[in-house]
Every structure is written in C-alpha cells, then in structure tokens.
C-alpha cells in the first residue's frame, strides 16, 4: 500500500498480563490528520509510541512508508527520523538553547551544515511564533512555548509524518490554544499527523478521521462529524457523554 505513510497490521502488545494492544489495524495516508481518542488506559498512547518503536510490539507489523519497522540499529534510527514525535512533557533537551534543540537533529542526523540548520531552525521557530526565544533555555519558557519549540524541533527533521502524544495534556488551560493553533496550521499545510488527544474541539475541526480506542482495541473509526453526532458503539457514546458535558 504505497499511499500509507503509517500502517499497522494485527499489532498486539502485552504489558505482562495486560493485553495493551489487541489486533490493531489501521492506516494513515499522506496528508491525513487522524485523531486517536479514548479513555485513559485504552492504549492510545502506547499505540502512538509503537510507531516510533519507543515501545516494542509482540506480534503484527508496523510499516512506515511501506518499510517494516526494523529492530534496534541504524536502520531504525533512520526510519525514526522520518516520523517525528511531539510528547506530552515536551522533552526539550534542557542543557541546550531552543535553537540548539531544533538544530541538533538536522546537524547530526540529516548532516546539514551548522549555518544552514540554524537558518532553517529560525524559520521554523518563527512559524510556531517563538522566533524571539531562540537563544533562551527550555526552563526559561512557558509550557506552551516549550511545546511549540518541540513542534519546531519535529518540523526541522522534515518528517513524512508527526506523531502527537497528548501534546496539550500537560499545559495550563490558557496555553492549550496556542499549541492547537500551530497544529491546526500544520494540518492546513498538508502535514500528515496522528494526534492522541482529549481535545475534541480540535478533532472536530481539524481531523479527517477519528479513531476511538478502548481496552486496547480500536472500537470505532469514522469521520469526525459521524463520530461526534452519531457514534455507533455504546462505549463511544458513553465516552463522548462524559467528555462533552
């Protein structure tokens, strides 16, 4: 399936006795924005993390651009560099300036020159609205600014897709929107995105498709309008009634 940037086939994962992912099958096509929703503990973050092999899987196949995810080593590192990730806790490198956070990957992985990486990084930082913070350190920025820096760091890798693992869950409420705005902009520009989030407003406005997970399974998969107005399963109805109150 050449069109799929990300595909999972019959993926299973156990944490000891807990069956964390059950026969997960899905695809993300180029330019698509897919939101993964579901109650906590449903496996949505775990699923997101397996795509970058931050979690291993016990059976099944994960493909990125049609290539099966390799085990540890250089090949894995290369494939990882093509799928960027944005984390709940931002995870900026605290000993590096914002600019150096963004240029580290381009210089060391993409082998760009320092000057070139720097120029591009400043462009990405401007795009997420924190160009003026380039020379500060992560601890000097607000949570919203840190997360936008993390998005700039992801963009600088020129990825084929970006995975967002609950990007706004650790933010103070007044900072959620500044991050969602950047993500909405990326979606409009055609970036392929897989977004694990509780932000249902974002899902409704921006997603092309919503995947609803519960107890390690994909329970429902639908366009946002259909999912929000007419969920097919009881579990999705129940989840939506709690979260949309």
């Amino acid at each position: 399936m050449p069109d799929s940037v990300i595909s999972m086939d019959k993926v299973n994962k156990w944490f000891g006795a807990l069956h964390a992912l059950r026969d997960i099958n899905f695809r993300v096509s180029a330019g698509e924005v897919v939101v993964v929703a579901g109650p906590s503990g449903s496996g949505k973050s775990t699923m997101c993390r397996t795509i970058n092999r931050l979690e291993t899987i016990d059976s099944g196949t994960i493909r990125v651009n049609g290539e099966t995810l390799p085990a540890e080593g250089r090949e894995l590192a290369k494939l990882r560099s093509e799928v960027a990730m944005v984390f709940q806790q931002f995870n900026l490198f605290s000993h590096l300036s914002i600019l150096d956070n963004v240029t580290l990957g381009p210089i060391k992985v993409l082998r760009q020159s320092g000057a070139e990486a720097c120029k591009e990084a400043l462009g990405f930082l401007d795009r997420v609205g924190i160009g003026d913070q380039a020379h500060k350190f992560p601890a000097q920025l607000s949570g919203g600014q840190q997360q936008r820096a993390a998005i700039a760091r992801a963009l600088a890798m020129r990825p084929k897709a970006i995975l967002f693992d609950e990007p706004t869950s650790a933010l103070d409420p007044e900072m959620v929107n500044e991050v969602l705005e950047v993500m909405t902009q990326l979606a409009k520009e055609g970036m392929t995105m897989l977004v694990v989030t509780h932000e249902m407003g974002f899902a409704r406005r921006v997603a092309h498709r919503v995947i609803f997970m519960d107890a390690g399974q994909i329970v429902e998969e639908a366009p946002p309008e259909a999912f929000f107005t007419n969920p097919k399963t009881d579990r999705a109805r129940d989840f939506l009634s709690k979260i949309l109150m």
Binding site: L54, A77, E82, Q89, F93, V109, A154
Partner: peptide
C-alpha cells in the same frame, strides 16, 4: 528524565 532520551531517539539519533 527518560523523556529526553526518547525525544533524542525519536529524531533519529543513534
């Protein structure tokens, strides 16, 4: 923090 190591690996560092 393990998150920094994950972030470093996710940008493709060996």
């Amino acid at each position: 923090p393990i998150g920094q190591i994950e972030a470093a690996r996710s940008i493709g560092l060996t």
